[in-house]
């Protein structure tokens, strides 16, 4: 019996040691968890294009600051970023997967769009790389020359936008509602098709991010007439034109989504330490002079924000009263 007790004591001691060792091992492993590992970076579009370019650029520097073996870009395109975001949502939350998609999915979640299997509030937000004010650019072929002309337009003014359901389309419909604009939004102008259409004198104007129109304006094809959120010289701001409380709310939503450019997140339930490590590496990457130089050369604006700040922006954007949500739904479905 005594032998048995002594054996059990020994066994207990041994297991304690093993357990302690394992814990020690664990914490050592945790400290350099990413060293030599492969990290997947899900991009919700096909290769090529802005999201892919940002991810590849940032991925290189993440690899450096995480000391990871590789940061592998995984393109998961489809259904306007929904497939990519769904994939990230159900990825293993082991800290080895992050992803990037369009913040316009906030509209989808607000209006209860089909196919969304995630709650944006629950993602572990890593940060955002860009985000810049939206603005309306009008073609010089168009009779509308200023915001005053647009507000006073008798005939509906033809606006181009990307496909229905895209963030660009939703932004435009919300703005039209907020400022009570007499517009005819024609969807389906992807990429630079809208600029071509303006050059042909078909559509009159587009709402989009300021930097994307810089070439068009520099070439003398058009000019800005309204800025949302930002400030452009001699151009009115949408917030100043919004007359009701509700209108200001809609403008604020467009603005906050515009701020959330090139967002990255990890799946919900990813371990806190790993999220923190990823956030730190992301911050270091976006402050790396080499990355900034590369971004400057390739014309990709960098307006970073990190971790909880991004999470707060997302949570705030989703925190709307049922009346506002109804208003958004009505505005976006206005065309039907």
């Amino acid at each position: 019996m005594e032998r048995l007790v002594s054996m059990m004591k020994k066994f207990t001691a041994l297991s304690a040691i093993v357990l302690l060792a394992a814990c020690g091992q664990e914490s050592v492993n945790e400290a350099d968890f990413y060293t030599g590992k492969d990290v997947s970076y899900i991009v919700a579009t096909n290769a090529g294009g802005g999201y892919d370019a940002y991810a590849r650029m940032i991925g290189n520097y993440l690899q450096k600051y995480l000391a990871a073996e590789n940061v592998i870009i995984r393109n998961v395109p489809g259904a306007g970023h929904i497939v990519g975001a769904n994939t990230l949502w159900r990825s293993k939350p082991d800290g080895l997967t992050i992803g990037t998609f369009n913040a316009g999915l906030i509209y989808g979640q607000l209006t209860g769009k089909d196919g969304l299997n995630f709650d944006l509030r629950e993602f572990e937000w890593i940060g955002k790389a860009a985000g810049e004010p939206r603005a309306i650019v009008v073609s010089d072929n168009c009779a509308i020359k200023s915001m005053a002309d647009l507000m006073a337009a008798g005939e509906p003014v033809k606006f181009g936008s990307a496909g229905i359901g895209s963030a660009s389309y939703s932004d435009m419909m919300l703005l039209a509602k907020a400022l009570d604009l007499n517009v005819n939004v024609i969807a389906g102008f992807d990429g630079t098709e809208g600029e071509m259409s303006m050059m042909r004198g078909e559509i009159c104007a587009i709402l989009g991010s300021t930097s994307s129109f810089q070439n068009f304006i520099d070439a003398g094809y058009g000019h800005f007439i309204l800025s949302i959120g930002g400030s452009l010289d001699g151009v009115p701001n949408a917030m100043d034109l919004a007359e009701s409380e509700q209108a200001r709310k809609l403008v604020a939503i467009i603005d906050s989504l515009a701020t959330l450019g090139r967002i990255s997140a990890a799946p919900p339930g990813t371990r806190k330490e790993r999220v923190e490590k990823m956030r730190a590496a992301y911050r270091a990457a976006l402050q790396d002079p080499a990355l900034l130089a590369e971004a400057g050369r390739t014309g990709r604006p960098i307006e970073p924000a990190y971790g909880d700040e991004v999470r707060q922006l997302v949570v705030d954007a989703l925190d709307q009263t049922p009346e506002t949500i109804e208003l958004i739904r009505k505005a976006i479905n206005g065309a039907q």
């Binding site: 259904a79 769904n86 089909d114 196919g115 496909g163 359901g165 969807a187």
Partner: peptide, 13 residues
């Protein structure tokens, strides 16, 4: 493309 509604997609993304 006109209404954004699903057409013969059987809810498959």
């Amino acid at each position: 493309p006109q209404t954004g509604t699903q057409r013969y997609t059987f809810d498959l993304l």
